[in-house]
Design a protein around this nucleic acid. Structure first.
Lengths: 132, 132
DNA sequence: CGCTTGTTATATATATAGTATAACAGATGT
DNA sequence: ACATCTGTTATACTATATATATAACAAGCG
């Protein structure tokens, strides 16, 4: 899977990496059980430090997206990603609230907001060609 | 308007303050043209430093939520908040994307997501009692 | 004039982000 | 057995962001 890091962005590198892996899982560009590159080779590929990759991997592991076997490496959780629970929903609501508050101030109605959400859902559901 | 700061939260204080003011505008708890406390009195009220308040105010000014007159103080933009434009929509989409990607991974369908959005829109539209 | 306003300038402390090396420990391949 | 790959841990360093503490400046108002 192609991953692009913007070193100039204000978003931390490990966050960019995390989000792109999560997006890869969401759009099934990364399948359950699929391997990810080792911290060293991923770091080398992206031109960043291995600790930065490790930080992203550790958080993805903590959140249930990946499993890390001592020497077999890193794989997308073959059991699937832990489904939404109350704590997750609470946090999602907390993240969504300020975005919607500003949207309301700027005149974005619920229908338009829903259209943006729909567009993102559809983008993530696009069928990908099997390449390679 | 009541503002509550959590000093232990990972979210920066100036961000908490910004978001609560924006939410106040969204739910019309703060009206256009209404005054905000001076940086010093707001800082004193919240038990934080005046520079932290100033940072929040500067960003709110930059984003068009408030006007700052040299000595008359700080007011919610009487002309109204600048309406959504292409740049704002692009940024909103950028903020929304990772949230939805994770939601997809965790089995949150578009309908449930829309329900959460709807709940927040409704919370912001609740009519407030006029208290003083 | 004296007060309050926002503003600017330093200085300091702490935390986070990122990099650079180095070393350790477990599993694999030859 | 041995070298090699894996994740992991430790240390050190730089840079930036967050937050505080003082102090001073400049403009308007009563």
């Amino acid at each position: 899977m192609y991953i692009h890091i913007d070193l100039e962005a204000e978003e931390p590198i490990y966050t960019q990496l995390k989000n792109q892996i999560i997006a890869g899982v969401a759009r099934k560009d990364l399948l359950l059980g699929e391997s990810l590159p080792s911290v060293r080779s991923m770091a080398s590929d992206l031109g960043i430090n291995l600790h930065t990759v490790n930080k992203a991997y550790q958080q993805l592991k903590q959140e249930g997206f990946i499993l890390i076997h001592r020497q077999r490496g890193v794989v997308i959780n073959p059991e699937g990603i832990p489904q939404a629970n109350d704590e997750y929903r609470k946090n999602l609501q907390k993240s969504l609230h300020p975005l919607i508050a500003e949207a309301v101030c700027r005149g974005v109605k619920e229908e338009e907001f829903n259209k943006m959400v729909k567009a993102i859902y559809e983008e993530l559901n696009h069928i990908k060609e099997d390449h390679e």
